[in-house]
Each structure stands twice: as C-alpha cells, then as structure tokens.
Design a protein around this nucleic acid. Structure first.
Length: 491
RNA sequence: GGUCCCAUGGUCUAGUGGUUAGGACGCUGGCCUCUCAAGCCGGUAACACGGGUUCGAAUCCCGUUGGGACCGCCA
C-alpha cells in the first residue's frame, strides 16, 4: 500500500509514455489490439503518450503490406497513437529497420565493455547442438563456445570476413528479479538464462536489443506487453544494466486463449482484425469486449465505453489468468451496440462495413454478364456480403471422392493461401494452380470444392477474382468452417 | 526435459478472513407476440485437491494435480 503510493507519486511526476510494438509479419492480430487497448487506456488515463513502433527487424518476414494493414486496423478500432511511423514524432524514426545504425552503435559499446561478445558459430552448428541437447533431455541453450574469444582475435576474424553475431554475456552466477505489476516479484537464476544474440549476422538487431534500446531512447516508462515475454525479461533487465540505463516498469498482460486453453491462434480461432471488421463487428463492441477480458469495471458493468474504461482502469484489477476469447459473448455485446445505434447511424455502419464503396465497385464487373434482371443481383452476389455461408456438404465433395479427400484439399488450400502476403487474383490463381500440380489434384476438383467452400454455390463468377473481393480473412474463415463441416460429416 | 506464469459454473468475471458465493454470456422453462429477434420473469451450473495458519477460509502459507507460456541469427 505504502509502496503503491510511493510508486504513484514517482509516476505522476514522470510523464507516462507507453508503446505498442507490432511486428509486420502477419495479418493484424486481435492480440495486438488487446495489448494496444490496455496501453492506450493507461496512456490516456495518465495524460501520457501512446507510441506506435514497428518492429520490422526480421528482414525475411516483414512486409510493408502487413504494416499498412496493422495501422489500418488499429485506426479502425480508434486506438489512435500520438507518435508513429505515419504521424512522426520527436523520437523518430519509429520503424526499427530505419534505426539500424543506432543498434549497431550500442552493440559496439557492449562489445567494448565486454558485456557482450562476438560469436562465430554457424547456424548449422547451433542447430546440431540444439538437437543433441534435446535428445539428451537437456535445456537447449548456447554452449558458450565463443564466450572466451578475446576482443583482439574476434576483431581479426571479423575483418577477415568471417560472419559473426553479437551475444549478450549473461553474468554468472547471478540472479535477476523482475517486479511485475500484475504478478509481483519473479526471480530468475542466471544459470537458466541463455547468452542471447543481440545483433544478427545481417547487421540487424534482434528483438531483445532493439526493444531495449528503443524503449530507453524513446523514454518509455511502462512496458505493457503479453505474458509470453516474461521469460525473456531478465535478459532485457540485464541489458539495461549493462548499458547503464534505468529500466522501465514491466507489466505482463495475460495471453488470450483458444477454447482449449492454448494461446490464441489462427488454426483455432479467427484472429485477424480484418475478419472482425468484415464480419460486421463494431469497433466499440470489440474494444468493450477486449476490455472485459482479464479486467472488469469496479461496478461490474458489462457494457462500457472506452471513456468509462479510461476513467476506471487500474492494473490492480487485471487478473493474471489467461481469458478465453469467447465469440458468443462478443456477438451478444455487438448486438447490444447495434441496437443502440439510430437507424441512420446503423445504415451508415452497414454501408461502411458490409457494402464499402470499394467492394461494391469490384462486384459489379464480376456479376454483370450473369444478370438478366437487376433483381437477380443479390441472388448472384450474396456471398460477397455474407459473413458465414452454409455450403451444401455434398457440393463440397468432388465426384468419385469422399469427405476426407475434400477436407484434405481444403486443408492444403488453407495452408498455402494463409501465407499469401498479397491477396490478389493472379497471386491466388498462381498459388492454387501450383498446388494442384504439386499435390496432383485435378484443377477441376480443387476449384469446385474451394468454390463451394468460399461462395456456397456451384456457379459463381471466376473464383480467384471472387476470393480477392471477398477478402482473405473471410475466405480463410469459410475454408476453415467447410473443413470442420466435412470432418464432422457422417461417413 | 528446464525455467516461469496461472487456477471461482462450459465461457467472461465480482469477491481481498465471517456472503444463502453475486453478475454476464451460453443453454433451458415461461411471459409478451402474426413469426423471429429484442425485452421481461425463472431454472441449470463453480471456489481443482490435500495439508497447514486462524475462533472462522474462495480469500493467507506449503504441497499435489491440472492448464499455459517460453527455451531461434522470430517477434
């Protein structure tokens, strides 16, 4: 109590700065929205700043398309940031790939102080080491082979062109204590902490380095992130110490879960924010729902606005157990919000979310030659605007095949389409044709099964064009539902 | 396997040593009603287990069990 009061005093003196740091390596995720919401609410409550930083240090997987989609989704939800790659700010740039030199500078300083060391182990060696450790039932971790290489020798090897990474030298023996607002003290013995790679051989920092350097430089006061980071926090704390910096406060939020209790994932739940927008969930309902996961209003009100949340939020009321993301309750809440809308406003929302101008324009050329009367429009084009469709099970199964095979085909489609970065007709078609070739499916079988799964019909405008307009999120959800239907089909 | 986190109905939660353990979603019975939805009234169902501490534990401590996360030149 006394402690809390002191904490409050210190915090009120220092202006609060929090951040959300999504990685543009996939579709906009509900988890990002959840963490974003808590950060946003806390910042607004304290009159602080909410920063958006893009963590795109993974050159292999980061995509500008994803960054754009993430920004769009967060904006849709109304989680507006004060500083970010698009709006700028006093601590720019806010995209880590543009801050490469900064990290290199600090990695160099760490090296010089012997707080870090160069490591020349090849990925092959590391992989082999890891699998040996696992087969011996040991904890996988770096074996420290390069830990003893002197700075002189390391420099020589580097200048001769040998690829190297920089690893953090974890002081051993030792112990690091993390004070987490939601879970109290967590202690870590250094013997269990790995010598983490800080700088990759491509010169990019890993998350661990970039995150610590940026949070310090951007004067972040509270790192509010998901629970999955708890185990790497001691590394971050050690890094702060090694750099001579005061660490921010850490608050680890519970992880959103699937029905079975595992971390929320796209195989078991719709996780794309695009899905929720396109299915017609209202942003205020989404926020309200996310707000009641792990947190409750002091008076237990279930329906509350962002403003209500800002007025009453506190970390003390966050329960540390991971909540299941329950679509049923979201739907109920969404219905509540819909009923509160005026007719005019509801119409506006329907136009915006189910009949957006862009989509209407894309549908017309696809259906025009299939119309004899305008009144047939909805009959032909229904699936562009529906959320869930109910395909006939028999239609899903190609001639002379069974449910099992149809499910397999759709499973393959699901897997390969999921990884598509650019959801465009030609990319979709190319992917599907390649899949037919590789797996030996008849083009006809695959396209018909997929057509029925995605549109609910046997006769439609060209499939790939249609899929583009339906959108990735809804398409993927429909494929998933069709697979589930096939799998639970009576034999 | 190691480290760490967690534990109130199927789900989201209230509860901070003394309550008939409350609310919400879902499911369900009824009312209303041309139907459905909404709304209203009712029902179903929980403190994982075992030890302590205490006059008294859902609440505090320990253990067990169960669940989860992390263990990458991903974030």
């Amino acid at each position: 109590m006394e402690q809390d009061r002191k904490q409050e005093m210190v915090e009120s003196r220092k202006k609060v700065r929090v951040r959300i740091a999504p990685s543009p390596t996939g579709d906009p995720h509900v988890g990002t929205a959840y963490v974003g919401l808590i950060n946003y609410v806390f910042a607004r409550q304290r009159g602080g700043k909410f920063v958006l930083r893009i963590e795109d240090t993974d050159q292999l997987r980061s995509r500008p398309e994803y960054e754009e989609a993430i920004l769009k989704s967060l904006r849709w939800l109304g989680l507006n940031w004060d500083e970010g790659p698009d709006v700028g700010g006093p601590y720019k740039p806010y995209r880590q790939s543009e801050r490469k030199e900064i990290y290199q500078k600090y990695a160099g300083a760490l090296l010089k102080d012997d707080r870090a060391y160069s490591c020349f182990c090849t990925p092959e060696r590391l992989n082999q080491m890891r699998s040996e450790q696992i087969s011996r039932k040991e904890t996988p971790g770096y074996d420290g082979l390069c830990r003893g290489i002197g700075q002189k020798e390391a420099e020589k090897r580097i200048s001769s062109g040998e690829p190297a990474v920089v690893r953090l030298r974890i002081p051993r023996p030792g112990e690091t204590v993390l004070s987490d607002r939601i879970r109290d003290e967590i202690r870590f013995d250094h013997s269990n902490i790995d010598d983490q790679v800080l700088l990759k051989s491509d010169g990019m920092p890993t998350y661990h380095l970039a995150n610590v350097v940026d949070d310090h430089l951007m004067e972040i006061t509270h790192v509010i992130r998901a629970e999955e980071w708890i185990n790497s926090t001691p590394k971050h704390l050690i890094l702060y110490r090694a750099l001579g910096w005061e660490p921010p406060e850490f608050i680890h939020l519970p992880l959103l879960r699937n029905r079975d209790g595992s971390k929320i994932s796209k195989r078991k739940n719709p996780v794309s924010l695009d899905y929720y927008r396109e299915m017609g969930f209202l942003p205020e309902a989404m926020l309200n729902f996310l707000g009641m996961l792990g947190w409750a209003m002091p008076d237990e009100r279930e329906v509350f606005s962002l403003e209500d949340m800002i007025a009453h939020f506190s970390f003390e009321r966050i329960s540390p157990a991971g909540p299941v993301f329950d679509l049923e309750k979201l739907k109920w809440l969404n219905g509540n919000y819909i009923r509160e809308l005026s007719d005019q406003e509801l119409l506006r929302r329907i136009r915006e979310q189910v009949f957006p101008e862009e989509r209407m324009n894309s549908v017309v050329p696809l259906v025009r030659e299939r119309l004899e009367m305008l009144s047939q429009y909805l009959d032909v084009a229904d699936f562009f605007f529906l959320g869930d469709i109910r395909p006939d099970l028999q239609d899903l199964i190609p001639k002379k095949k069974d449910a099992r095979e149809a499910a397999d085909i759709l499973g393959q489609c699901q897997e390969t389409l999921e990884s598509l970065v650019s959801w465009k007709t030609d990319k979709i078609e190319e992917t599907l044709r390649k899949l037919c070739e590789e797996k030996g499916y008849k083009t006809r079988d695959l396209f018909m099964t997929l057509r029925v799964a995605v549109t609910g019909k046997r006769a439609t405008p060209p499939l790939c064009e249609s899929m583009e307009v339906v959108g990735k999120a809804i398409t993927m959800a429909r494929i998933g539902r069709a697979i589930a239907a096939l799998e639970s089909a009576p034999k």
